[in-house]
Amino acid sequence: MAFSADELRVLRRALATALNPAPLQDDDVQDCLRLADSVDEAVREAGRERAFLLADLVRYRQALPGSLAGYLELLRDALAAGYDPGADDLAALRALRSNPAAAALLARCQVLAERSVRARLARVAQVRGRTAPVGVPSPVPRARLLALPGGRASDDGPRPDSSPGGPAKPAPKPPAPGERPVPKPSEVFPPRRRPVPPPPPEERAAG
């Protein structure tokens, strides 16, 4: 971007005012506003030219190898304007490496592409370093615990003979083969029968 002599004088006055704040006259303020508008318009024009250049670069790349000379010239202009070569450019140059100019441009593009990748990785690492606390390791995800069949999970379930108010009663153990079952208390101690009262004297005499 080039400035005229009048624009440079306005820029110099603006920088001096920024370093040593002082009230500006109306003419100086208008000059600064006009310079800012000119800079904005130049930036917009540079963006439009860059868009046109990249569009032409894509068209020439799609027309390879017949457009080799024009493609290499456009690629040099794009690199001079700050363009980062992409994967399509590197693939096209590799296919044309038999041409000395294409081989030289390929080596240059590989260096620029590697530098761009390193810059992106550095920015990502810097952003992650800002978000994560310093000295605090990232939490390790906890593994889920699975209940295995036959463990304590099966023993802790409700039992048919358990009551809400007391402990669960053990289930009766079946007798082993050839072993006599344990008699029940009612079989060992049969219930006592109530005594039958004797008949009245009249029935005894009649008998």
Rank of each mutant, 00 (worst) to 15 (best):
V182M: 01
G165L: 14
P175L: 02
A171G: 09
P172N: 03
P181F: 00
P183Y: 00
G178R: 02
K184L: 14
P172Y: 03
G178K: 04
P174Y: 02
P172V: 00
S186W: 04
V182C: 08
P181C: 03
P183Q: 06
K173A: 02
R194A: 15
S186M: 06
S186H: 07
A171S: 14
R192F: 05
K169E: 13
G165K: 04
S186E: 15
A176H: 03
V182E: 09
V188H: 06
P185L: 13
R180W: 07
R192Y: 06
R194L: 13
P185S: 10
A171K: 12
G166E: 07
A176F: 07
V182T: 08
A171R: 15
R180E: 14
K184N: 11
G166W: 04
P183N: 00
E179I: 11
R194D: 12
R192A: 15
G166Y: 06
G178W: 00
P167E: 10
P172G: 03
P185Q: 09
P170K: 09
P181N: 01
G165W: 06
G178V: 00
K184H: 14
K184I: 00
R180D: 14
P164R: 11
K169N: 06
P174Q: 06
K173V: 07
P191C: 03
P181S: 10
K169H: 03
G165N: 12
P177I: 04
V182K: 09
A168S: 15
P191Y: 04
V188E: 09
P185V: 03
P164T: 04
K169V: 11
